[in-house]
Design a binder for these strands. Structure first.
Lengths: 123, 123
DNA sequence: ATTCAGATTTAGAATGATTCTAAAAAGGAG
DNA sequence: CTCCTTTTTAGAATCATTCTAAATCTGAAT
């Protein structure tokens, strides 16, 4: 556990936003100006592989990193990219595994919309 | 409707596979050797915008293009990328719209697994 | 505390997918 | 056939991400 990895984990855990690697890099540079993008990716990948955080891949934008590791889904604004956790949505994993006789390793559910802020800005 | 656009539409409609832009380009070059990648993308984008085909964005790989335009979800092999339509999966759109008071423009549901072919190859 | 092997960081190049640009060519309404 | 618009082409550019190789750091064993 290097300083860099600890910093990146702290940054992901310290925000409710689903930050991009770029945003995490910006925040990290404020505390550690020498840190480079590759280190941010290295650590985000390592942390995701270790199950400490989750990498969320979403259509039409860069990946996001999420501190919430329990299975949940996302609501994504197609204009500003803001991402909100969706709780209480029925999980179709069991249904799919039963009907198709497969074992799922992961499930992405991304609901796309335009958030109220962006909707206003359209007059 | 140019020759190129007609060709690309025919190629997407003529296969059950969810081809990538690259694969469509390869197939298109067989019939029209001068066609360039940008034209393939231009037309795939135009056709998707016109609702003739659907662009499917999936974690960890290039976008796929789907002739089936009714709402459905996908099963994706994380090893070979093969994509299968999922029918009969309950659509959580209405539930999310009701609970969150939003209007969804799109919904992605991608279930990830390792297909039987790839599973065998792992011995 | 010192050493050493292995993991990590850095800087920058490389990659893959996709989009953009500007000029040439094609489409189609009249 | 002519003019205007749209599309194609070729290639550069962009974005997100990964890779490479050399320098540095980490942690375990001395």
């Amino acid at each position: 556990m290097t300083k860099q990895r600890a910093l990146i984990l702290r940054l992901v855990r310290g925000s409710c936003a689903h930050k991009t690697a770029e945003q995490i890099w910006q925040a990290a540079k404020a505390e550690m100006p020498s840190i480079v993008m590759a280190t941010v990716y290295n650590n985000l990948n390592a942390l995701a592989e270790a199950g400490e955080i989750i990498r969320v891949r979403v259509a039409g934008g860069p990946d996001r990193f999420d501190k919430t590791v329990t299975r949940h889904f996302h609501l994504v604004c197609d204009e500003c990219g803001e991402m909100t956790d969706l709780t209480g949505v029925q999980d179709p994993t069991a249904q799919i595994e039963g009907e198709y006789g497969v074992c799922l390793s992961a499930m992405e559910i991304n609901a796309h919309y335009i958030c109220s802020k962006c909707m206003e800005g359209r007059s």
